[in-house]
Design a protein around this nucleic acid. Sequence first.
DNA 1: GTGTTTATTGAGACGAAGTATCAGTTAGTT
DNA 2: AACTAACTGATACTTCGTCTCAATAAACAC
Lengths: 144, 144
Amino acid sequence: MPKLEEIVQQLEETGYRNTASRREVIAAVLSQRGHFAIDDICQQVRWAGRATVFRTMKLLQDTSVVCRVLLENGNLHYRLSSIGHHHHLVCVECGGVQDMEDCVVAEMLTRLANQTSYAIEGHWLEFYGRCGDCRVAKPELQAV
Amino acid sequence: MPKLEEIVQQLEETGYRNTASRREVIAAVLSQRGHFAIDDICQQVRWAGRATVFRTMKLLQDTSVVCRVLLENGNLHYRLSSIGHHHHLVCVECGGVQDMEDCVVAEMLTRLANQTSYAIEGHWLEFYGRCGDCRVAKPELQAV
DNA sequence: GTGTTTATTGAGACGAAGTATCAGTTAGTT
DNA sequence: AACTAACTGATACTTCGTCTCAATAAACAC
């Protein structure tokens, strides 16, 4: 779990300034559980304006502090990111997000390379379901 | 390649009316190559209003005439759909869209079921690259 | 054909998500 | 303390999509 000061310091080292608004947005992001919308952050901050929230979120994306999560309905949300991953298992019950093993993706890419004439350069990969905890909590909703 | 009249007839059989606006929107959709935005359709039609275009597109989705394609930047586009597929290989050069083998997806789901405690209920799966034709046309842009 | 019913239409207001502009502010440097 | 470039926030704007509502027109019965 990254800390506010660590992130701010990392940004400073990259040449970005340490401002009150930025710290406020980052703190709001760090307080989130699972995935969240930018609007959740906008509502949580007091001083920082909407434009600054959007700008800071883009900054955090570029520096891999957060990454985008695609929801089932096509909406884009965000989450604190682990390094190098952007394939998710999203719990539709609690909003929790789990990383997917990279090796599963790698194998898929190999297979596509063999079966098609495409040179694959990028992908979106998101799975939706109910996590172990939620399945235990409400077993009656078990998927068929 | 489905024909306008076939689609209209299929809609009629399902209880939907055969109207001029609907036919115009469907004709515009059928004239598309690769993936397209709803806005492309709005600009192509003459009489049909924006709301009608959106309503008809939803109708075409529900009846599996078109399906959504997620672009790399998170935008949603549409394409004429094959039956049962909604996993795509999208060419970033020409906008062409190719279906992905369902078996690849099935194996992935099996693997996820074994490796995690999630009950998978849905997914998004889109790959981006350059198709064979475009690679031949511009080999200097070959992916690394 | 005429009439009736109901789905459908289009204009336009609305909302969410995100970008662009720009004058004013402030962090970091000297 | 002064300077300067980075940053801010208010606001206007765009895009994508939904909602409302009075007007229209299919489809069907007669």
